[in-house]
Every structure is written in structure tokens, then in C-alpha cells.
């Protein structure tokens, strides 16, 4: 089995609020003038092929009062064998717009929001993507459900590893559930919270490949900083056009300026 490191600097406009898991999108939005950088690093284990990729995102957030956000990302791709001569890089910028078109605050700690997002990935071609996400927070519970489509891209520096990198369009249903472990009840002195998270994802590629993954994790959120970790494991896989991922460990950090 090979292990690859997917490092990420993810400055993500969608990462404004709590109860957002590490991989599943949420219908959250930073308030105007607030900048949120986010760094996500993933370690991925898989059987074949013997080459992999490392991905780094960098997204600059521009948030408008109307609830539109623009993201910009850079992906760096490099191998992570101990021989650093193997290292190589690739930049795959993303441009993403997100519009939160619905929000309703139902109680003190109760709200629901919906957002659409879309954009393009700039590699050799312009690869568009589009998604819809619903978020509900009720007391200690947070739930996100998302549905997305993205154009398939062809890995150009080795066999494809990630869903959507084997050339076929990718359809994905994702969901996450977050539960606030601490504090049980907020008070005047509450300045941080711990959450248990579970993410699930069902990507289907139009070449017939699909998998179902589950990922338990943990999220710490302070007034400005948040740290998160998640272990994603496939429950079922039927993959023939790309590598079969065996597990993925993601670690993330975000802050608020």
C-alpha cells in the first residue's frame, strides 16, 4: 500500500461558521470584511497506482453583503516519497462563487440556511462545477447535506487517484453531522466548543466508478481559531478507472481576521 500526502492551504469563503465539517460543504458565509484562511492537509493511503498527488488549496475570500463569496484556490501536486527529488508541483486554481439564498433563524441556537455554489477549475481546460447545500443547526446538532456536479478532469502527471480525475463527470452527495460535545450549554463565559463530527460522501463518476465513505472526526472551535481532524474510510467501493483509496486522514486549521 502506498501512502500519499495531500497538503492543502484552503482559504475558503464557506468556512465562516461552526458546525461545518472538514470535507462536506456548508451553507455558511463570513460576514463582510471578514477574512478566513483555511489550511487542510490530507494523508491518503491507497493500493495502486504507485504514484500519487499532493493537493494544496489557497482560496481568497471576497464576501459581499448579498451573500456572494468568491474563492480562489491553488492546488500543488507533488509526491511525498522520502526522496525529495521526486517532488513535483502543479497549480490548479479554482474560482468559486457562492450565494446563500435562504436563511432563517428559528431560535437562539437554531437556524437553517441554503446556498448554491459554482465555479471553474483552471487546469488545461476550464472545468466547471456546481453545487447546492443545506445546513441546519439546532442546539448542539449541526447537519449539512450537499449535492454537487463537476466536470471530470484527466490526471496529467500519473494515474488518477481522486474521484473526478479519471476524465468522467462526477456527481456527489455529501452529508455531515456535528454534535457539540462541550460545552453542554453555552454561558456568558463560553469562548470555545468541541464537536464530534461524522461525514459521509457518495461520489459517482459517469464511467461507473462509485464509492461510499464515512469519516468520523473532531472539531475544536474558539472565537477566532478552529482545528479539525477527520479519518475517511470507504464503506463500499466499485472503482476500476482510478486508484482505490483505503483511507484518508485530513487535518485542518482555520482562523478569522
Amino acid at each position: 500500500m502506498k501512502t500519499q500526502l495531500l497538503g492543502g492551504v484552503l482559504l475558503l469563503a464557506t468556512a465562516a461558521s461552526a458546525q461545518e465539517a472538514i470535507s462536506v460543504p456548508a451553507a455558511t458565509m463570513p460576514s463582510p470584511g471578514v477574512f478566513i484562511p483555511r489550511v487542510v492537509t490530507q494523508l491518503i493511503g491507497y493500493e495502486d497506482p504507485t504514484t500519487g498527488e499532493t493537493k494544496t488549496h489557497g482560496v481568497q475570500n471576497v464576501s459581499l453583503d448579498a451573500g456572494i463569496a468568491a474563492d480562489w484556490s491553488v492546488m500543488l501536486k507533488f509526491e511525498t516519497s522520502l526522496n525529495f527529488d521526486d517532488r513535483k508541483s502543479q497549480h490548479d486554481p479554482h474560482l468559486m462563487f457562492k450565494h446563500r439564498f435562504y436563511r432563517k433563524d428559528l431560535g437562539i441556537i437554531s437556524t437553517e440556511r441554503m446556498a448554491v455554489y459554482g465555479g471553474v477549475e483552471f487546469d488545461d481546460n476550464l472545468d466547471p462545477f456546481l453545487g447546492l447545500v443545506y445546513t441546519k443547526i439546532d442546539g448542539r446538532w449541526g447537519t449539512n447535506v450537499g449535492f454537487s456536479w463537476e466536470t471530470g478532469e484527466v490526471a496529467n502527471d500519473g494515474p488518477p487517484i481522486l474521484a473526478g480525475h479519471a476524465g468522467a463527470d462526477l456527481w456527489k452527495v455529501q452529508s455531515s453531522v456535528l454534535y457539540r460535545l462541550f460545552p453542554e450549554d453555552y454561558s456568558t463565559t463560553s469562548d470555545h466548543a468541541w464537536y464530534a463530527t461524522v461525514e459521509t460522501s457518495l461520489p459517482y463518476e459517469e464511467n461507473g466508478d462509485w464509492e461510499w465513505t464515512l469519516g468520523p472526526g473532531v472539531l475544536y472551535e474558539g472565537r477566532r481559531q478552529a482545528f479539525e481532524a477527520n479519518l475517511r474510510i470507504p464503506v463500499q467501493q466499485d472503482i476500476s478507472q482510478r486508484a482505490e483509496t483505503e483511507w484518508a486522514l485530513a487535518i485542518g486549521w482555520r482562523t478569522l481576521f
Binding site: A16, A18, S31, L106, I108, S110, E221
Partner: peptide, 17 residues
């Protein structure tokens, strides 16, 4: 009296505004 704030970061967002 506010509705919809669910997290420590939400508080910071509101404070800023």
C-alpha cells in the same frame, strides 16, 4: 436579543459588525 448564533466564531462575527 439575537437568534441563530450557534458557535464561538459566530460571536466574533457579530462583535466585528
Amino acid at each position: 436579543h439575537i437568534r441563530g448564533m450557534s458557535c464561538p466564531k459566530c460571536v466574533t462575527n457579530a462583535e466585528i459588525q
